[in-house]
Design a protein around this nucleic acid. Structure first.
Length: 467
RNA sequence: CGGGGUGUAAUUCAUCGGUAGAAUGCUCGGUUUGGGACCGAGAUGCACAGGGUUCAAUUCCCUGCACCCCGACCA
């Protein structure tokens, strides 16, 4: 689609209209012809590639190897773990016809790969010497979501899913912890998105798992998005799929497992969090184009100077906008919309002075200095801004009245004592729409009273309106 | 999957029971260019799909589908 920023709704007025428009106008994504599907255009896929590169390095560094498992899962396999299949059943896409004939056994398009990977693990793992199994895969999965949203919730999405099997629970739990911390690092250092690491409640945890660690991100309108998760699967799947090994004493043991996933949803969160009325603002580390050089005129010497400059910026990802027939103002607006972190203008003035006019996308400030350093500064400032927002919108409440009042007027994270009884959780959700997001990992044990029922509560949980 | 809304050019929309129009975008020519330039000439439509009603449907009705908004589900 052609570029027209005039059509961009104001972020400050309507976040979802702004988001939908900006993603299309900035040419990050487009709608696919089938329901709920999306096309990742080069500008959008480029962001994912940068995230992948950074994360893949971390994954491999920790000893996990990449592999690939099939897209289709025989339906019977899905049914091995009861809670798992029940949790995913409403979201499955199932192939019933192949080669023009009705299939004897229907094939589920993977919504996640636990079952198909673990049937192989069951064969691969025999001895304590075969452990740990440390495997990750970068792939696509399909979940038939009722309500879709570009990047944030699509029928098919891209992600990585790590699946490890260990001899002991402790070792598996370490990996679960490692996963969420690695994700938090990517979110903070690359996407400039601070969040809260915590444990999911019983009702919110992964279907078939024992415990789920999550990274929860506060979005601009005060709703909270589950950024990614790392699950302690205990022995649920190993018992269901008979993944056993003989230990050093010759005893048969079930393995302890974990899985952890990080999806293209992260891009959506990042786009929504940063940006303003003029368009996107990409954190430099995940911006496919980190700096754009705009020749002010189409004069040959100006174009030559712009091209020369682009060659002098080392490994900065830079683009020179030599497109004809667009005025300076038009180009500036175009690149602002696309969120390129730094704009460099090259014209007669710059050629005379030898100093290029550089403008930061995030603040609009005119800056001087070395490009690499400026980009690092932008990255840091963008994170700091989000951290401030997160801190300012985390509200501790003493009683239920305050809870309701905060949900109605401020939203954001609400920190309150909860007795961990599912009934209180459900009631709170029904009455205020706020659900438990997590028990932060750094929460201290205290003696308090549940904000809802007044019974003994040990911890302050985080509640929020979920995305 | 429940409630609401919308489907007309690439996009945003107008129109009208008698088979379509604007703005933006696109193409060409020219003049321009320091925060969305201008003039001129063009190209672009099975009016979402299928069924009705009607002499005649893009328009009215039904069904389906898609998209958007609000719920429930969710990385």
């Amino acid at each position: 689609m052609a570029f027209t920023k005039r059509q961009l709704p104001k972020k400050s007025e309507s976040l979802s209209d702004w988001y939908n428009a900006v993603v299309l106008l900035a040419e990050l994504a487009d709608y696919g012809p089938a329901k709920g599907t999306m096309i990742f255009r080069p500008a959008g896929y480029g962001i994912w590639e940068l995230i992948q590169q950074a994360m893949d390095k971390e994954i491999k560094k920790s000893g996990v190897e990449n592999a690939y498992f099939p897209l289709f899962i025989p339906e019977s396999l899905m049914h091995k773990e009861k809670e798992h299949v029940e949790g995913f059943a409403p979201q499955l896409a199932v192939v019933t016809i192949g080669g023009g004939e009705e299939l004897k056994e229907r094939l589920v398009v993977r919504p996640t790969s636990e079952t198909i990977m673990y049937q192989a693990y069951a064969r691969w793992i025999q001895s304590w010497r075969d452990l740990p199994v440390l495997i990750n895969q970068w792939n696509n999965v399909v979940r038939w979501e009722k309500r879709t949203y570009l990047f944030l919730r699509t029928t098919e999405f891209l992600w990585q899913e790590g699946h490890c099997a260990h001899a002991t629970h402790e070792e598996s739990q370490e990996r679960v912890q490692w996963g969420i911390e690695m994700y938090a690092k990517i979110y903070k250092d690359f996407l400039a998105l601070p969040g809260v690491i915590g444990t999911k409640s019983e009702s919110e945890k992964f279907a078939g798992g024992d415990a789920t660690l999550t990274y929860e991100i506060l979005m601009p309108e005060g709703k909270v998005l589950q950024g990614c998760t790392s699950h302690d699967l205990g022995q649920n799947f190993s018992k269901a799929q008979n993944i056993k090994f003989q230990d050093k004493q010759g005893q048969n043991q079930f393995v302890w497992q974990n899985s952890w996933g990080f999806s293209t949803r992260s891009i959506g969160a990042m786009l929504m969090a940063h940006g303003d009325d003029a368009g996107l603002t990409l954190p430099p580390k995940v911006a496919p184009t980190q700096a754009v050089i705009i020749p002010v005129t189409q004069d040959e010497e100006v174009l030559a100077a712009a091209k020369k400059l682009s060659g002098e910026l080392g490994d900065v990802r830079v683009k020179v906008d030599t497109r004809e027939g667009e005025s300076l103002g038009f180009k500036i607006n175009k690149w602002e919309l696309r969120g390129v972190p730094l704009r460099i203008e090259v014209g007669k003035q710059e050629m005379a002075s030898g100093k290029f006019r550089m403008v930061r996308r995030d603040t609009g400030e005119v800056v001087e200095g070395e490009v690499k350093g400026i980009l690092d500064q932008i990255q840091d400032d963008m994170l700091a801004k989000q951290e401030k927002f997160l801190a300012e919108n985390t509200h501790e409440v003493a009683d239920y009245e305050q809870f309701k009042e905060t949900m109605e007027n401020k939203r954001g994270f609400i920190k309150a004592f909860w007795c961990e009884n599912a009934e209180c959780e459900t009631r709170i959700k029904e009455e205020t729409k706020a659900s438990t997001r997590c028990l932060p990992v750094d929460a201290k044990e205290e003696s308090g009273k549940c904000v809802y029922c007044g019974k003994v509560a040990k911890y302050k949980w985080l509640f929020a309106l979920a995305y």
